[in-house]
Design a protein around this nucleic acid. Structure first.
Lengths: 353, 353
DNA sequence: ATGAAAGCGCTAACAC
DNA sequence: GTGTTAGCGCTTTCAT
């Protein structure tokens, strides 16, 4: 037990009611008008060095933090860009965010992230919430939105960039890749390599339109070659790596003649690969494997998985650039459409012919 | 560099740069005073069903989105919680975010994320920016901040929760684990299992105080047992998995007598594990391995890595709860200190004795 | 149950 | 260069 010294309160000393400081406080402390203080703090217009110094010193010693709410209301300018994405937990959107930040860091704009968990209603909610802060632009994943969300975006009056996907009509601008084409190209590469009995493993995500489109493009291109998918399996929840192992085991047991597995993402693909290595199943001879995304994370695997790079960072950069240029007037035209080309990475799980 | 196909614009589509709607518009459209419209839209006070319906219908058909900037200025209430974290790309903070969202979803509060890239000056910047929007609370990673940042947090007048780490004095509240203790406990487990020649592989991050503290706790506990680290290596950049392989190879070549490797995170640990499996190095007999974080992502590996769960989601939940309860007055006292206990997961890379 | 008036803290636009 | 005057679109408060 330790001593407890009670220090008597000193009632003379008033702890200043922590009202946030205002421009007026800085104005009074520096003996300069509010307006001039405002000018100094925003580096606007001509201010003499003398007053500038006075103001800056006062602001600093007081610890003044400007109130952007008031500033935004007065100027109807908000340096926020709403970024609406389905998830943070799968490595793809953090990379998009990186791209966005790289560009916005050189502007006064700031990204604000909202997450929808792949739920259309949640997207609508998040969008409403963000628009109510009157951002200078919106970057939103996907081309599929609820009717209400679409209406809000159209009515927002700010640049809107729909990202990731170009298979559809954008509300304003769009930047992404064609997932249908990505699926088709992977199918062609697989067939060209001589595989015939192809299986598919994916996420159970009716609302992941991009995964769906890849799958559609994939089966469509196979159909053109007269090939039909031998078997398929879907998962939800849990560690993708573990699920990849598990499902690969399941599907190979059920359909032993499968000689290729296309995975809807690299993580479950890596799981499948590890399963094959474990079981001594020869890759890419006995069976070929391919994923999607090109996640750098997996570069350390014993065998490099075939995949397709989704250009995530570049998507973020282009989207941010479109917004930034529209906001600063450099290139004020909306309605831009940028389709990036994903690059096939053969890796070591797709045999070369 | 990738192809960039610019699809020609559709010039028909023009974004009507309309003036955003205001309460007044809804008021006029419904024939109800602005004040009553405001009441309806916020479910405040008594409004007759008749007028409520009129207002709601008008707002909906117009597509009115309230202006939170004006609302916040008038009410000096902002339902935003600033969340300031070092990075989005390492799986740990997304999980913290999940925990935060789980709790805030049941309140009117909304998280707004800022990323610092482990740079103190950037943290200061981001914090200043966020505080200038007058959020209702701040959740910030770590206990180490610049002097200016500390001053801002103290002066903000809102609840502040410092998360992840409890080895130090918080500005207001804190929630986390003791990384020093985590390092110590891992050291003890390793020694108890009979390992003697211990190496360390980590990130080259002088500014990652938590990794540093784990390392300090680790070496300190080893010292108590009369053991000193045999060799160490640090990396930066690139795929952690690949770096883990590479560094493990390097260090084992240089110090062949090493019988245990402690990694500063699970990702490089997994890389090390894969290297050992590849090379036929017997784990955990010939060499033992342990990481840190307990990332579910790796559950699919052929051998489960020993690690320590950092309770990331629970940290997020507790932090959000502290803010929420202070904001709604349920439990208005700040200065809370919550230390969670990380659990050691022996896995299969630490021999049992 | 509804309305009128007075700001919230800042900036645009204009004076001086 | 610097100051003055009106708002920005809401909510608070007080009246009716």
């Amino acid at each position: 037990m330790t001593d407890k010294k009670i220090i008597p309160m000193n009632d003379d000393i008033e702890i200043p009611a922590r009202r946030p400081l205002t421009l007026r406080d800085v104005s009074e402390a520096s003996g300069v008008s509010e307006m001039t203080v405002s000018r100094v703090l925003r580096n606007r217009g001509d201010v003499s060095d003398a007053t500038r110094d006075k103001v800056l010193k006062a602001a600093k010693t007081l610890g003044y933090v400007p109130n952007k709410i008031a500033g935004a209301l007065a100027s109807s300018r908000v340096n926020l860009v709403a970024v609406i994405i389905p998830s943070l937990s799968n490595m793809v959107f953090p990379e998009v965010m990186t791209g966005i930040s790289e560009i916005l860091d050189e502007t006064p704009l700031q990204p604000v992230v909202g997450v929808t968990n792949y739920l259309p209603e949640k997207e609508e909610e998040v969008l409403f919430e963000m628009l109510s802060w009157r951002p200078s632009g919106v970057i939103i994943a996907g081309l599929e939105h609820t009717e209400a969300a679409t209406a809000m975006l159209k009515a927002s009056g700010v640049p809107v960039v729909e990202i990731m996907d170009t298979d559809g009509e954008p509300i304003d601008s769009m930047v992404g890749i064609s997932h249908r084409r990505a699926g088709r190209e992977m199918a062609r590469a697989i067939v060209k390599a001589g595989y015939q009995n192809i299986g598919f493993l994916g996420t159970k995500m009716p609302l992941d339109h991009r995964a769906r489109k890849r799958f559609e493009g994939f089966t469509e291109a196979l159909a053109k070659e007269g090939i039909e998918i031998v078997d398929q399996e879907f998962y939800s929840g849990g560690s993708a790596l573990a699920k990849g192992r598990e499902l690969t085991s399941t599907i190979l047991k059920r359909s032993p003649d499968i000689d290729f597995l296309y995975f809807s993402n690299d993580m479950i693909g890596a799981g499948g690969l590890l399963h094959c290595l474990d079981e001594g199943i020869e890759v890419p001879g006995r069976i070929g494997l391919a994923g999607f995304n090109g996640v750098e994370l997996l570069d350390g695997l014993p065998v490099k998985l075939a995949t397709m790079d989704a250009e995530r960072r570049e998507i973020g950069r282009s989207a941010a650039r479109i917004i930034a240029e529209q906001v600063d007037g450099t290139n004020p035209k909306g309605g831009q459409r940028i389709e990036l080309t994903p690059t096939l990475q053969i890796g070591q799980t797709l045999r070369r012919r």
